[in-house]
Amino acid sequence: DVEPGKFYKGVVTRIEKYGAFINLNEQVRGLLRPRDMISLRAENLNVGDEIIVQAIDVRPEKREIDFKYIP
Score class of each variant (00 low, 15 high):
L24I: 14
L40E: 06
V53H: 00
I22A: 01
A55P: 02
Q54A: 04
P34R: 15
V53R: 00
E50D: 07
G10Y: 01
Q27W: 15
L45Q: 00
Y8Q: 01
P4W: 07
A20W: 12
N25C: 12
D49I: 05
N44S: 14
P71M: 12
R41G: 12
L45P: 00
E50W: 15
K17C: 11
I52T: 09
A20P: 01
F7W: 10
V2S: 03
N46Q: 15
Q54F: 12
I65P: 04
Y69A: 06
V58S: 06
I22R: 00
L31R: 06
Y69F: 11
Q27H: 15
N23T: 14
I70S: 09
L31I: 10
E64Q: 14
R35H: 11
R59P: 02
E50H: 14
L45G: 01
D1M: 14
I56M: 12
Q54H: 04
R35F: 06
I56Y: 09
L45I: 12
Y8D: 00
I65M: 04
G19N: 03
R33C: 10
V28T: 11
V58G: 04
P71S: 14
T13W: 03
I22G: 00
Y8F: 04
I56K: 08
R29M: 14
D1C: 15
G30W: 03
P71N: 09
K9W: 13
K6P: 03
A20Q: 01
A42P: 15
D66A: 08
I51P: 00
E26P: 14
R41Y: 10
V58L: 05
A55C: 14
K9V: 12
I15L: 09
E50M: 14
A55D: 01
D36H: 12
D57Q: 14
E16C: 12
K6T: 06
T13F: 03
K9D: 02
R41I: 11
M37L: 08
G30I: 12
K17R: 13
G48L: 02
N46S: 14
P71F: 09
L31S: 03
N23S: 15
K9F: 09
N25Q: 06
I51Q: 00
D36M: 06
D49A: 06
T13L: 02
S39N: 15
E64D: 04
S39L: 13
E64H: 10
G48Q: 01
K6G: 09
E50A: 10
R33K: 08
T13P: 00
K17L: 09
D57C: 13
F67E: 03
Q54N: 02
P60M: 09
G10I: 04
N25R: 06
E3L: 14
Y8G: 01
P60D: 06
A20T: 07
D36S: 05
T13S: 10
V2H: 03
D57S: 15
I56Q: 06
R59I: 04
Y8N: 00
D49Q: 10
P34F: 15
V28L: 13
N25K: 05
V12Y: 00
R14L: 08
I22P: 00
R35T: 10
N46C: 15
R41Q: 13
D36G: 07
Y69M: 07
E43S: 12
I70G: 05
R63P: 06
V11W: 12
Q27Y: 14
I15V: 10
F67I: 04
K62V: 10
A42M: 15
P60F: 09
D66I: 15
K9L: 11
N25T: 12
T13H: 04
V53F: 05
G19C: 10
I52Y: 10
I56D: 02
P60Y: 09
E43A: 13
I56F: 07
E26D: 14
I22W: 01
P4F: 08
G48V: 00
V47L: 10
D57M: 13
F7E: 03
V28D: 05
K17S: 13
D49H: 04
Q27I: 12
K62Y: 08
E3Q: 14
N46P: 00
I38G: 15
I15S: 01
M37T: 06
G48M: 02
K62G: 07
N44F: 13
A55I: 15
R35K: 14
V58H: 05
G48H: 01
M37D: 04
E64S: 07
L24C: 08
N44V: 10
D57E: 14
R14G: 07
I38M: 09
I38Y: 07
V11H: 05
T13D: 03
D49C: 07
R35W: 06
Y69I: 06
T13V: 11
L45V: 10
I52E: 04
K68T: 06
N46D: 07
R14V: 06
D57G: 14
E3A: 09
R35Y: 07
I15N: 01
A42G: 11
G10C: 07
R33A: 07
R35E: 12
L31E: 04
G48P: 00
L31Q: 04
L31F: 07
G5D: 04
R29N: 08
R59M: 04
E50K: 11
L32A: 02
D49V: 05
S39K: 13
L32M: 06
L24P: 01
T13I: 09
R63N: 14
N44C: 15
E16L: 10
M37K: 03
P71K: 11
E26R: 13
I22Q: 00
V53A: 01
F21A: 01
L24V: 10
V11S: 02
A42E: 08
I38F: 05
L32V: 05
R63K: 14
M37N: 07
N25P: 03
G19P: 01
F21I: 14
V11Q: 05
Y18R: 07
V28C: 08
R63A: 10
Y69L: 08
K62S: 11
E16P: 01
E61M: 07
D36Q: 06
V47G: 01
E64T: 08
I70E: 08
L45D: 00
S39M: 13
V28I: 14
K62D: 07
K17Q: 10
I65C: 10
D57F: 10
I70M: 10
I51S: 00
I52C: 15
R14C: 06
R33G: 07
R35G: 12
G10V: 09
G30Q: 03
D57T: 12
R33N: 06
E3N: 07
R35V: 11
D1R: 14
K17T: 11
P60L: 09
E61R: 08
V12N: 00
G48R: 01
M37Y: 06
K9S: 07
F21T: 08
V12C: 02
E64I: 11
E43P: 08
V28G: 04
R63F: 11
I22Y: 00
E16M: 13
V58R: 04
E43H: 13
E61G: 12
V12I: 15
G19S: 04
R29W: 13
E64A: 05
V58D: 02
E61H: 11
A20N: 01
V28S: 04
V28M: 08
L45M: 07
Q54T: 05
A20C: 08
R59W: 06
F21E: 05
R41V: 12
Y8P: 01
V47C: 04
A55W: 06
V28H: 07
R41W: 12
Y69Q: 08
R35N: 09
G10A: 11
L32I: 08
I65A: 04
V53T: 00
R63M: 12
G48T: 01
K17M: 08
A55R: 02
D49F: 07
Y18M: 07
I65S: 02
A55T: 05
D57I: 10
D1I: 14
R29D: 07
E61I: 08
I38V: 13
K9E: 04
Q27V: 13
V12P: 00
T13R: 03
